[in-house]
Nucleic acid binder design. Structure first.
Lengths: 207, 207
DNA sequence: TAGGAATGTAAGTGAGTACTTACATTATAG
DNA sequence: CTATAATGTAAGTACTCACTTACATTCCTA
């Protein structure tokens, strides 16, 4: 009977149902039912469906720990750093899968809110990653490429992989080593490219 | 007063409105109004909203010319082929922007239909691209990497770029040479990777 | 010019929605 | 033990939506 616990249950039910059926498809009746609560209780706590959704988006937004994805990467070798980052990024997306789905499906209806969420999700980590690239470029460890575009490519590939597998196909990427294999493959191509080395043979082989 | 013309107008209005407001948000009243037609006419032609949406999805699906994206690439050098393919892919996405948006936002509500569309959009071109990679690998022109994953990476990066720019940020990628620059950058990294060459300096520079 | 098909006007039906009101019940804190 | 805050039950309001019915109008064709 603690109000905060009740609110939490309602917010959980909201994010789940909206990600399944969209904002208009998720009725207050069913949200309340799934939260194990009366519809009236929902309105007593949040006043309106619109307000409930706003609070839901804000309380479940992406800020918290995404900016902590890049901290201890400086010590690692390049390839290992990218693999670690890639895995963390995918796991972070998976944890917020419902919000990612809401973001995609409600983009048309709430452009402002969703753009803000997208910014929180991607922009900061993007800039940090670009800075990381630039630093390595200055050391001569990396070629000269547009760092920001490369960061977008790297995260974009992983995001696209996540979308295809988790959202479109409904497979669990954490099972059966799928994710690790995908991350390794992505990082390998991202680092070494696809063209055969100029000096004759292949630069590298995989099993 | 030709029925086919009326149907077309209604289908156009449907795809536009649904991509703006989602399936539930697009009312038959407004669809009819935007088509310059009475609501009754809409129902006389399509019977139900659900049926209208189905026909809309089917008539506007992706099949037509996407499989013709890969035809004349065999003669071109690798880099040029990828750039051409990338540009065509982005332009094709842009032509079908409304359907892409519908596909994303109605994924939760119509998984079957949207998965089918997604398959039509991506799978075939994906496999063809993977085959292209495999052929070049056999010739020794490319390294040994998982061809299918690489194809997904390449298209995924471009798709992600499209999503960010056209859908999230609302910018027109065809203006100001944005698209060409992005494709060149993507292709460059995809081909050559980001690591500096083992033999000392950079393998390649850009202006 | 007559006839039939496509469309329009107007009014309405039934179901579902967000949200409300009035009152009863429970649980916890002082 | 009592007062208060949180929740429940039940009924209902005002609205919108997909969809229908009955009848009038327009336009192309034969």
């Amino acid at each position: 009977m603690r109000p905060t616990a009740t609110k939490e249950k309602i917010l959980d039910a909201t994010i789940a149902l909206v990600s399944e059926k969209g904002y208009l498809g998720a009725t207050t009746r069913e949200i309340a039912r799934r939260a194990g609560v009366t519809e009236l209780t929902l309105f007593r706590h949040f006043g309106s469906k619109e307000n409930l959704f706003e609070l839901c988006v804000e309380s479940r937004s992406f800020l918290p720990d995404l900016r902590e994805l890049l901290p201890d990467l400086d010590g690692l070798p390049y390839e290992e750093a990218l693999e670690t980052l890639g895995r963390r990024f995918l796991l972070s997306l998976k944890e917020r899968k419902q919000m990612v789905m809401i973001m995609q499906s409600e983009m048309a209806r709430y452009p402002g809110k969703m753009r803000r969420m997208y910014g929180q999700l991607m922009d900061e980590i993007l800039k940090t990653l670009a800075t990381y690239f630039t630093a390595l470029q200055k050391k001569g460890a990396l070629r000269h490429f547009p760092a920001e575009l490369a960061a977008r490519m790297f995260l974009g590939m992983l995001f696209s992989y996540f979308r295809t597998e988790e959202i479109m196909r409904g497979t669990d990427i954490t099972k059966g080593g799928r994710m690790d294999a995908a991350v390794k493959g992505v990082v390998d191509i991202f680092i070494h490219g696809t063209a055969a080395g100029k000096n004759g043979a292949l630069k590298r082989r995989r099993t």
